[in-house]
Write a protein that binds this DNA or RNA. Sequence first.
DNA 1: CAGAGTACGTACCGATCGGTAACATTGTCA
DNA 2: TGACAATGTTACCGATCGGTACGTACTCTG
Lengths: 191, 191
Amino acid sequence: MRSKSAPRRAADRIRETAFDLFYREGIRAVGVEEIVSQAGVTKPSLYRAFESKDELIAAYLRDYNQRFFQRFEAPAADHPDDPKAQLLAYVDRLAVRASRDGYRGCGLTNAVIEYPDGDHPAHQVAVESKQQLRDRLHEMCSSMGARNSDELADGILLLLEGSYVSGQTFGEGGPARVLGTMVRRLIDAST
Amino acid sequence: MRSKSAPRRAADRIRETAFDLFYREGIRAVGVEEIVSQAGVTKPSLYRAFESKDELIAAYLRDYNQRFFQRFEAPAADHPDDPKAQLLAYVDRLAVRASRDGYRGCGLTNAVIEYPDGDHPAHQVAVESKQQLRDRLHEMCSSMGARNSDELADGILLLLEGSYVSGQTFGEGGPARVLGTMVRRLIDAST
DNA sequence: CAGAGTACGTACCGATCGGTAACATTGTCA
DNA sequence: TGACAATGTTACCGATCGGTACGTACTCTG
């Protein structure tokens, strides 16, 4: 077993490098040549581990989905049995991140926009993840006693997605800075 | 002067075809060959009218910006001296459009995501347009007597942007259906 | 009807795209 | 030491990318 910081396996290096490049520069903007050269491997190694670029993209988005929900649920540990506080903990951290320069939003949201065709694996993986998020938000709103939890969850989802994209458009001091305030207002109006 | 419905000039046909293709399929996904062939012209005609593909992209986004503000301000005529009703008129129409299948969101928002590099003309044109929108929203919130008009305008902007992208992710019955309700709640809480 | 612009098309460029075939090299474990 | 799996090396494929040199057909004017 090698150290974690310098993965030995070519497939891992490719996966990590693809993650960074796809996220920062966009999926369509990054070619396989750029990925393998930056990962310090060669093209055949990429195609031994992944059937195609599309499959690598799907793997990237599955990785992203996993890391997203990790980040989304992580603050919950500090607020057991308090769904409102759990949600707000994520929201408040997002508000900070999305109001900083260089923020690149949500990789899954970005993927839907880069691949509008519903048949494309990238689109499908991303949409599936967003549906999970929508369900989870509904669950949380429900357990915090909202009158119309579907409605509230969708409202909050709009604010979240708005923060992801607005964070990229306006850098420092963008509209995402008010995210926490707005989520609180919607929650207060519904409970 | 020829009829408007079947433009004779190659440059016009290119501009219109590029608009449709860039918007529906994404900018990076569409090559110049596809544009000219669908427009029924040839590549040199494109490059006589536009310096480069990037310039054509910028022209597309400037066109989009113009059509956007047309659509944004159009309902205002029905509600003179009532900024709240003006805004809500646009919002309610957007909620319907963005909750239908096949919705492709805002071309300018999409462009920012496709071109994260701030030096790219596409990014610059799109960001400029979004800043105009942010200013206009602030103006409207101000004149409807909001306590903290900056804050309210940013909250509404988050909801709008959230509707643009969520409309693409979830088709029919997506979260954008609650847009009108949520905008009203934020306005009510601020006035 | 001649001639000048203007508008357009034919055919092509080098570069890069995603992807592959064939073979050499390395590290690991028995 | 020998065998096997993983990776690297090199060279290549057809397709498509954005972009252009150059020839041709209009149309307007005198």
